[in-house]
Design a protein around this nucleic acid. Structure first.
Length: 488
RNA sequence: GGCGCCGUAGCCAAGGGGUAAGGCGAAGGUCUGCAAAACCUUUAUACGGCGGUUCGAAUCCGCCCGGCGCCUCCA
């Protein structure tokens, strides 16, 4: 793959598009910040996760072996670090739902996993949970204390920002001006208002707590990502990603914690932009969010995927029902062409010679697609290439194209649309079941019509065909009923 | 106040010095017993406004208007 896959990506830290060169040839180490599991995920979370899912898939398409690590934050961090008054999200939810904190974390972790699966996201290689890595976090904090970059205060440990001049390099903030924006009144235990917690002592009411060299407490929010990314991807791993709103302070803190402890951190930083509703950021606190569960009960997950594919990951994307419906329409067309293509091909997949008109169109599509994706994963342009091929295929399907003519196009749809973009996933569950039951009802109506006309041969033929498919037909006084032979 | 982003057709949305991708919608057409679907064609002399640089700007620079994000938890 000489320079066919010369991938350039926008590095937030350098503020420009740079060529991606892996630290280990042929491999990519990718860390993506995952959710805090205390409530259902919303569409905004999906935007970021889908972006990195596609980036990961494209690297694999380009021949890389990718290790993708995405954390699950299940420690009950407090909402306001400057005061002990802030409440712990998971703890608060535990009290509200009358569950153990870990029950809350598990409940919403699985909820999140289900949502991501429905959206056809590939599972990360590793999904480390913060509570499962307390020793690693304690070890990292100890290194920082030993090097003078952290200090204890009343059972808590803070990172000494003044000792790390590089702080601010990612978000391009002047370390000396950070003080002004911070509330200085509170938090007497900090040496400096800019310092942030690595370990917090647990107040008696705090439910999630662990022993540490500094007493009973819980880790700070940022430290888990430093510890877990280094553990599974190693020093100087390739790419760290996340939502734009995590750039400061979360990612800034991650770098400081790792590098001040002597561990070179991520070589490239990628940030997905936010999702807006009526121009404003979708977020939990604003209350303007749509949970994925609610959204996916009304819409095809693939339509959601397509909607997000239509805008670049670094752009703000606007969500509304009209835009989603338009995406659903667009997806239906794309899928329709692909399905018809597969239907015409049947089991045959002849080797195209490359001379065929559609094979040439497919080759153009692939070249355009790769050019777009190599340039900082420009999915809107890559998608346009796919629609271009769809149009040519649909047009050809009006006639009687030879299978050899269709094979190259089918392969292109599969590799680009299905494998890289994650589209065309068969939507399981309700939608499929409704279709099946509707179809069976329709067939039985027809059979009933035959029976009423005493066209027994036809009615028996239908019954036999259905039986062969594992559907048993029962004729009773109230009419005919069907049931599936085995639980599938 | 500091740092940064955006403003492109009715809607969503790429592009980003050489004359406007794609999707939805809409209009016309082919097909059709009718309808739907499908397919074909058309749909921004124009990229918030005003200046500047240039042979040439939506693309670069300046100012202005409007909107948004981070700086506190947030994907």
């Amino acid at each position: 793959m000489a320079d066919r896959f010369e991938i350039h990506l926008y590095d937030t830290k350098q503020r420009e598009k740079v060529r991606f060169l892996p630290s280990v040839p042929g491999r990519v180490g990718l860390y993506v910040c995952g959710p805090t599991v205390y409530s259902d995920a919303h569409l905004g979370h999906a935007k970021t996760q889908i972006a990195f899912d596609i980036i990961r898939r494209y690297f694999e398409y380009a021949g890389y072996q990718v290790r993708m690590v995405s954390n699950i934050t299940d420690v009950g961090h407090i909402t306001d670090e400057t005061s002990d008054e802030g409440h712990d999200r998971i703890g608060a939810r535990a009290r509200l739902e009358q569950l153990e904190p870990m029950e809350v974390a598990d409940k919403y972790f699985w909820s999140y996993a289900d949502d991501m699966a429905r959206l056809n996201l590939r599972r990360p290689s590793v999904s480390p949970r913060a509570t499962g890595h307390i020793p690693e976090q304690i070890a990292l904090i100890s290194e920082l204390i030993a090097r003078g970059h952290a200090y204890q205060a009343a059972g808590s440990v803070y990172f000494r920002v003044a000792s790390w001049p590089a702080y601010g390099q990612l978000s391009h903030r002047d370390i000396d001006e950070l003080t002004s924006g911070t509330r200085e009144e509170v938090r007497g235990e900090k040496e400096d208002p800019r310092d942030f917690a690595l370990w917090k002592r647990a107040e008696p009411s705090h439910l999630m707590r662990w022993d540490s060299p500094w007493g009973v407490g819980f880790p700070g929010w940022h430290i888990e990502c430093s510890a877990m990314s280094l553990k599974y991807l190693g020093d100087g791993f390739d790419i760290h990603g996340g939502g734009l709103d995590l750039q400061f302070p979360h990612h800034e803190a991650e770098i400081a914690q790792a590098e001040a402890a002597g561990h070179p951190f991520a070589r490239y930083w990628m940030h997905a932009n936010l999702l807006t509703v009526g121009g404003e950021k979708m977020s939990k606190s604003r209350g303007n969010f749509v949970t994925l569960k609610e959204l996916l009960s009304r819409h095809d997950p693939m339509a959601v995927r397509l909607l997000l594919l239509q805008s670049h990951y670094r752009s703000v994307a606007e969500f509304n029902e009209v835009a989603l419906s338009a995406a659903a329409q667009a997806y239906a067309r794309l899928r329709g062409v692909y399905q018809e293509l597969l239907r015409r091909l049947g089991d045959s997949l002849p080797e195209p010679s490359g001379e065929e008109w559609l094979a040439q169109a497919a080759a153009r599509c692939r070249a355009d697609f790769e050019r777009a994706m190599n340039d900082d994963f420009n999915t809107p342009e890559a998608l346009a290439a796919l629609f271009g091929l769809a149009r040519e295929v649909a047009s050809a399907l009006q006639g009687q194209p030879q299978p050899a003519e269709l094979a190259a196009a089918a392969r292109t749809f599969r590799q680009l649309g299905e494998e890289v973009f994650g589209l065309f996933a068969e939507t399981q569950g309700r939608a499929g079941e409704e279709l099946v039951s509707g179809l069976l009802d329709l067939i039985l109506e027809q059979r009933t019509a035959y029976r009423e006309r005493r066209q027994w041969a036809e009615s028996d033929r239908l019954r036999a065909r259905l039986e062969a498919l594992g559907v048993t037909v029962e004729d009773g006084q109230g009419g005919s009923r069907w049931k599936l032979a085995q639980s599938s």
